[in-house]
Design a protein around this nucleic acid. Sequence first.
RNA 1: CGGGGCGUAGCGCAGCCUGGUAGCGCACCUGUUUUGGGAACAGGGGGUCGCAAGUUCGAAUCUUGCCGCCCCGACCA
Length: 442
Amino acid sequence: MRLSRYFLPLLKETPSEATIASHRYMLRAGMVKQDSAGIYIWLPLGFKVLKKIENIVREEQNKSGAVEILMPTIQSAGHWKETGRYDAYGPEMLRIKDRSNRELLYGPTNEDMITDMFRTYVKSYKDLPQSLYHIQWKFRDERRPRFGVMRGREFLMKDAYSFDVDLESARLSYNKQFVAYLNTFDRLGLQAVPLRADAGPIGGDLSHEFLILAETGESKVYCHSDLLDMKAPGYVSEKDLQKVVDSRTSFYARSDEMHDQTKFEKIPENKRLVARGIEVGHIFQFGDKYSKPMNANVQGADGKVNPVMMGSYGVGVSRLVGGIIEASHDEVGIIWPKSVTPFGVGIINLKVGNDEVDKVCEDLYEKLKNSNIDPLYDDKNDRGGQKFARMDLIGLPYQIIVGPRGLGEGVVEVKVRLSGKKMNLTLEEAVNFIVNEYTSET
RNA sequence: CGGGGCGUAGCGCAGCCUGGUAGCGCACCUGUUUUGGGAACAGGGGGUCGCAAGUUCGAAUCUUGCCGCCCCGACCA
């Protein structure tokens, strides 16, 4: 993309409402624009990142065996009355009436709807287990939206639902999602900690929440520090699932509400970690909580009819955009992990109009495009300082700086955003370096 | 939901107390000189001062009502 033809409305000054880094930078880097409290327009740069995160979440869901569907944002109140949640959910649910005075709502979650869908089709244990997910916009009428997209009212969420014939099988489905979450957050460049959680308003027996550590996090985290050193498991066969899950859940790791100081103090003192975190995922097993009142029953091999055993698994996709920035920024701007960066590399032309500089930039631009690097070429006729500051702010992992001074010696400058390290390389070397950075690790 | 605050140009703000027809910085447009870490000078465009009613000869400024937004706390993915 050529910057001169892109839509990137940057702000030099920080809007007064933004108090945390991710909110400040998302506004300044032209990623989002607030339309009303907790509701945002996703501008091109922000939208690209959102889609990249969404795709990683999708790929890991697919790998786990979950199947994608898409449920509507607007739901009928009927299903919610059947489970008793219409009254239980409270004012955070946005209730709407249509022209015929029918009661509708903008979905804050989808257990009721999917259970209704499931029961009309599935009657036999032979069709189980089943995991379905969708990635869809939700609405919760928060009393106090804040922190930009981290706590919006409208937000993009992946929610998966598992259906099993018994609790033992349901545990397997739960574990698959648990492992999928470890892999998902790893690919997003995040260190996510699974905490034992309270099932909360969704209800259930077994539950974990996944938090990324950040000073601005809303939850307090107490955990064994070795948990942070564990690497993502990658592919895990069914027979090893429980072992992998146990290897994480055996560590003490809890949020404020579930904290048990006595148990915490059994951890060696130098391994006790108290930090703050941002919740980016939450998984629940809740058995027949919805299937029973909704008569979502299946017939087993023994001929008996029982409610299907369910779980649900959420990831805050739009919240992750902010969460990643909280976890990865410095005093001048964002530092994107390679997996979600809106562009692979920024090319800075320091002297637009100079034949040689223009030619080298165009050459780099074409070569990188053809190597699937998706470069952003700053071809605007601005001063150097402005270009550097701009590129640092939007946080692409690599920059290639092309100017007459370097070209006089036959080199361009490659800058690594994270380390600040700069290298003088020939044009070919620069292209090879960037391509290699994106292919050497997955 | 408790407590506090703010709505004046795209962004950041002053003016309001003490009423007289709107200003500063950044951004934007034109020109000149510049050009390797957010350039300088000159000229210029952009506002029903959140909305409505009231007081007044006259309201950004005073009064009342409404709307919107933010911050702290409690709550939440």
